[in-house]
Amino acid sequence: MSVVENGDMDVDDDGLTVGRTAESVGISVRTLHHWDAIGLVTPAERTWSDYRVYSASDIARIQQVLMYRELGLSLSEVRTLLDDPDADVVEQLDVQRALLSERIDRLRHMVAAVDQMKEAHMSENRLTAQQQADILGDDWDPAWEDEARQNWGETPEWEQSETIKNRMTADDWKRVKEENDTFEADLASAMAAGVAPGSEEANALAERHRASIGQWFDISHRKQVCIARMYVQDPRFQEHYDKRAAGLAAWLTAIVDENARARGIDPDTATWE
């Protein structure tokens, strides 16, 4: 066996010195010394000049330690998992998985918040609530935005819609207004023509309705049903649609419900998910 005394060089074909081991796994020599001192990772082999030699099994143990540390376990917890034959590894990993999932959710919300702040600072075209109302017409009350923020301001859907609105120009809002007016006119025409909820034509209109909401945030058929309920439960929504055609609010709710039912969803029990 060929041996060299330099602690930062390869020792032989069967092991690595502290320096080379630290370099290969991406940690410091001081960390390896500490783990050796507390008995967490103690290399079994040494050179004749007493240099530590880390074998393949030692390096595999180091990798396990690093994995558990990344999961948030303390060194004492890691040592228990590695050395105690009665340790419940699966239970400990389940706990760490739950903690990681919570951390991921928090980070996602933070990323969304940063994106929203970035869009707000970068955009010079964000319209005020009053400017939006001027474009959307007399039916729009700027106070509704404050009400919506109070009800939905902590939800992912609100964050998503705010990010989109931050990018919108006055021309974008005019396009939204025109598309909405055209769609509501098509709804009124279909109802007047006797289009029945659940028919192919009615289902196509229900999908157009879902797409119009989907430009603001991700929306499932269940969420669409929950939104459509407000058209007959909130007098303001009902007045808006019935002003265009008497009974339109109830008919729109009905076509949304029947479209969802055709997809295996019970509109009577649908929840926001």
Score class of each variant (00 low, 15 high):
residue 47 T to A: 10
residue 63 Q to K: 09
residue 78 V to I: 15
residue 52 R to H: 09
residue 87 A to I: 06
residue 54 Y to T: 13
residue 30 R to W: 12
residue 53 V to W: 14
residue 35 W to P: 13
residue 53 V to R: 12
residue 69 R to T: 09
residue 27 I to D: 00
residue 26 G to K: 04
residue 44 A to N: 03
residue 73 L to Y: 14
residue 41 V to I: 12
residue 65 V to D: 05
residue 33 H to N: 01
residue 62 I to C: 13
residue 26 G to H: 07
residue 26 G to D: 03
residue 87 A to K: 12
residue 72 G to I: 00
residue 85 P to G: 12
residue 35 W to A: 02
residue 77 E to V: 08
residue 37 A to Q: 15
residue 45 E to L: 11
residue 55 S to K: 15
residue 46 R to A: 09
residue 25 V to W: 11
residue 33 H to I: 00
residue 85 P to H: 14
residue 64 Q to I: 00
residue 48 W to I: 07
residue 80 T to G: 04
residue 82 L to C: 10
residue 52 R to K: 06
residue 57 S to F: 08
residue 68 Y to E: 02
residue 51 Y to R: 11
residue 58 D to S: 04
residue 61 R to Y: 08
residue 89 V to K: 02
residue 84 D to S: 10
residue 40 L to Q: 13
residue 45 E to W: 06
residue 69 R to P: 08
residue 31 T to Q: 15
residue 31 T to D: 07
residue 70 E to M: 03
residue 38 I to N: 06
residue 44 A to L: 05
residue 66 L to Y: 04
residue 80 T to D: 11
residue 61 R to N: 11
residue 39 G to T: 11
residue 30 R to V: 08
residue 52 R to L: 05
residue 33 H to F: 04
residue 38 I to Q: 04
residue 53 V to P: 01
residue 39 G to Q: 12
residue 46 R to G: 07
residue 85 P to A: 15
residue 78 V to E: 04
residue 52 R to W: 10
residue 67 M to L: 14
residue 40 L to A: 10
residue 71 L to F: 13
residue 46 R to H: 13
residue 82 L to Q: 07
residue 54 Y to R: 09
residue 55 S to W: 04
residue 64 Q to L: 09
